[in-house]
Amino acid sequence: MISIVGTVGVPACYGGFETLVEYLVEETDSQIDKNITVYCSSKSYPQKLATYKGAKLVYMPIKANGPQSVIYDIASLIHCAFHRTDAVLILGVSGCIFLPFFRLLSKAKVVTNIDGLEWRRDKWGKSARRFLKFSEKVAVKYSDVIISDNQAIADYVENEYGVQSSVIAYGGDHAVIEGLTFTDTNFALALCRIEPENNIEMILQAFSQTDKPLKFIGNWDGSEFGRALKSQYSAFANIDIIDPIYDIEKLAELRSSCSFYVHGHSAGGTNPSLVEMMYFGKSILCFDCNYNRASTEEQAAFFTDTAALVALIKAADSLSNGQQMVEIAQRRYTWAIVRQKYFELMAK
């Protein structure tokens, strides 16, 4: 039996890890994935399914995000330990401080995806960063296999801990739906969680200095940071501040009709929103960091500050990296490849 710990749960309703689990539990003829248990937060599911796509669902009465995520993950691991799982896939390091005790209680193989160096994110205070860094250290020490979603993360793990990790990214092929018409209706697109490390303000400042229309999708009302930016930049005629869109068809329509895509993430390894967009054949402008360079094989256009982004926006008509993005995505970022790699690791 394989147990999956560390997400809100399935059906996917939150973020990248949840989407990953959604595709890991796809029913196939393979024998290895016939017996999967996914731990879910009952706080996020008014309707509690017993199974989903053949996987058994176990609900914990704890929130899966924020400070409670530590308790949520630990409670899930305790349940795993007493239900004789053969392998446990841990997504994120929040509850990994419990791993030394879990190893005493269970002989299960432990495979941990350490996510995108969560402790470096600007949204955390000093105490939270220290805790997450310590959890990461414990995860690397007590896991049988470490998964990094980006080569830059793998390089960090090897340099920091002397441990080699397996690099497995995310799939993005689900983002393209049948019947799409690919056009250019003269707007740039940006899509992300509204957090400082995603360089939201840099992107907005740059477009406020140009006439190029921008549609920027995000959870603006989820923080004071987002609300302040929404209030300030909604005043610009060319900037359209859009609330979160989770409907894959609506997202596909926007992605297929934009002129180009702007990706401001500076943390988090391989970002699902980036690999999804790479399938649409549009030129991509990325904030210049080792994660984004690794994800796009350095074929995107890169910017480091507002002035550099303004220059790229003004020269956008001459950009032509869209086909390179599609080629990379089809070669590296399919769910079939991701599924195979995960299950091979858990079966060894």
Rank of each mutant, 00 (worst) to 15 (best):
D149H: 09
N150R: 12
N150C: 15
A152E: 12
I153F: 13
A154I: 10
A154F: 03
D155W: 10
E158H: 11
E158K: 14
E158L: 13
E158F: 13
N159H: 04
E160N: 07
Y161E: 06
G162N: 11
S165F: 11
S165K: 09
S166Y: 11
S166A: 10
V167F: 06
V167H: 07
I168F: 04
A169L: 01
A169Q: 05
Y170R: 03
Y170N: 03
Y170Q: 03
G171C: 01
G171R: 01
H174M: 01
A175H: 01
I177P: 00
I177F: 00
E178R: 04
G179M: 02
T181P: 00
T181R: 00
T181A: 00
T183E: 01
T183S: 03
T183M: 00
T183K: 04
D184T: 02
T185E: 15
T185A: 05
F187H: 12
F187Y: 15
A188M: 12
L189H: 11
L189A: 07
L189V: 08
C192T: 15
R193I: 13
E195W: 11
P196T: 05
E197V: 07
E197R: 09
N198H: 13
N198E: 12
N199C: 14
N199G: 09
I200M: 03
E201V: 06
E201D: 06
M202W: 02
M202N: 06
L204Q: 04
Q205K: 10
F207S: 05
F207L: 10
F207V: 06
S208N: 10
Q209A: 14
T210N: 09
T210W: 14
D211H: 13
D211Q: 13
K212P: 11
K212M: 15
K215C: 08
F216K: 04
I217S: 13
G218M: 06
N219S: 10
W220D: 08
D221E: 14
D221Y: 08
G222R: 11
G222K: 14
S223N: 05
E224T: 06
F225M: 02
F225P: 02
G226N: 08
G226Y: 07
G226A: 09
R227Y: 01
R227A: 06
R227G: 03
A228I: 09
L229K: 04
L229M: 13
L229A: 05
K230Y: 11
K230L: 07
S231N: 05
S231V: 03
Y233D: 12
N238D: 11
